[in-house]
Amino acid sequence: MKRTLVLIALVSGVSGCAAVSERFGLGGGSGTTDQTTPADPFVSAPETVETSALDPATAAPPPPASARSAESLDTTTPEQRAAAAAPAAEGSRALGTTVASLGDPTQPGLWLKTPLVGTESQGRVTNPATGKSSAVTLIPRGGEATGGSQMSLAALRLIGASLTDLTEVEVALEG
C-alpha cells in the first residue's frame, strides 16, 4: 500500500512538472505553447468571472503570472472560502474515500479531479484529520475508482491539508 501511494505521488508530481515549468518560464518542456488549445472549460474567462460567493468553483480569477507562493496562487476571496466551508446541505450522498494530492496550482477555484465521478458535479470533500470540509466541483478523472485524485490548492488549504503530503479525503455528491 505504501509503495502504491508513493508511486501515485511521484506520477502526480511529475505529470504537472512541464506545465508548471512552462507557466513560470523555468525552462523544460518543448519551449512552444499551443495557442489553439481551448481555455479550461471549468473556469470562466477573466472578463466573465462571476464574483458571487455562491459559485466558488468558477468565481476565482487565475493567479497572476508572477505568483510564486501558495498565498498568491490562491485567488479565492474570503467570501468564496466562507461559502465553500459552510455546512453541507441535506441530501448529500457519500461517494467514498480517495487519496488526494495537489493538482495544478495555477488552476483557480475549488475542485477535485477524481475517478469517483463520471460527470462534472457539485460535491464536498472532508478531511477526516481536521474535520474541515469544502464545497468543490467534482471533475471526472479516468482510472480505477481506487486511483488517486488531484485537488486544487484553494480546496486543500480550506480543509487544512498539507500541500506536499497525500491526504485521504471523504467525497460526497451534493444536491
Results as ranks from 00 to 15, higher is better:
residue 84 A to S: 14
residue 84 A to C: 11
residue 84 A to F: 15
residue 85 A to P: 08
residue 86 A to P: 14
residue 86 A to G: 14
residue 86 A to Y: 15
residue 87 P to L: 12
residue 87 P to Q: 07
residue 88 A to T: 15
residue 90 E to L: 15
residue 91 G to S: 12
residue 91 G to E: 07
residue 92 S to Q: 15
residue 93 R to W: 09
residue 93 R to Y: 13
residue 93 R to E: 15
residue 94 A to W: 02
residue 95 L to C: 13
residue 96 G to T: 13
residue 97 T to M: 12
residue 97 T to R: 14
residue 98 T to L: 00
residue 98 T to N: 05
residue 98 T to G: 14
residue 99 V to R: 11
residue 99 V to F: 11
residue 99 V to G: 11
residue 102 L to S: 03
residue 102 L to I: 08
residue 104 D to G: 10
residue 105 P to N: 11
residue 105 P to Y: 05
residue 107 Q to R: 15
residue 107 Q to D: 11
residue 109 G to A: 09
residue 109 G to N: 07
residue 111 W to Y: 15
residue 113 K to A: 14
residue 113 K to F: 12
residue 115 P to Y: 13
residue 115 P to S: 14
residue 116 L to R: 03
residue 116 L to Q: 03
residue 119 T to N: 10
residue 120 E to H: 11
residue 120 E to W: 08
residue 121 S to T: 11
residue 122 Q to H: 12
residue 122 Q to T: 12
residue 123 G to F: 10
residue 124 R to H: 05
residue 126 T to R: 10
residue 127 N to P: 11
residue 127 N to T: 09
residue 128 P to Q: 06
residue 128 P to D: 06
residue 128 P to Y: 07
residue 129 A to W: 06
residue 130 T to L: 06
residue 131 G to L: 06
residue 131 G to R: 03
residue 131 G to V: 01
residue 131 G to E: 02
residue 133 S to W: 00
residue 134 S to C: 08
residue 137 T to H: 09
residue 137 T to Y: 04
residue 138 L to F: 07
residue 141 R to G: 01
residue 141 R to F: 08
residue 142 G to N: 03
residue 143 G to R: 02
residue 143 G to A: 03
residue 145 A to L: 02
residue 146 T to D: 01
residue 146 T to M: 06
residue 146 T to V: 05
residue 148 G to A: 10
residue 149 S to D: 01
residue 150 Q to Y: 04
residue 152 S to C: 00
residue 153 L to T: 02
residue 154 A to W: 01
residue 154 A to T: 01
residue 155 A to Y: 04
residue 155 A to P: 07
residue 156 L to R: 07
residue 157 R to L: 03
residue 158 L to V: 02
residue 159 I to A: 06
residue 161 A to P: 05
residue 162 S to N: 08
residue 162 S to M: 04
residue 163 L to N: 07
residue 163 L to S: 04
residue 163 L to V: 04
residue 167 T to E: 02
residue 168 E to T: 09
residue 168 E to D: 05
residue 173 L to I: 13
residue 173 L to G: 04
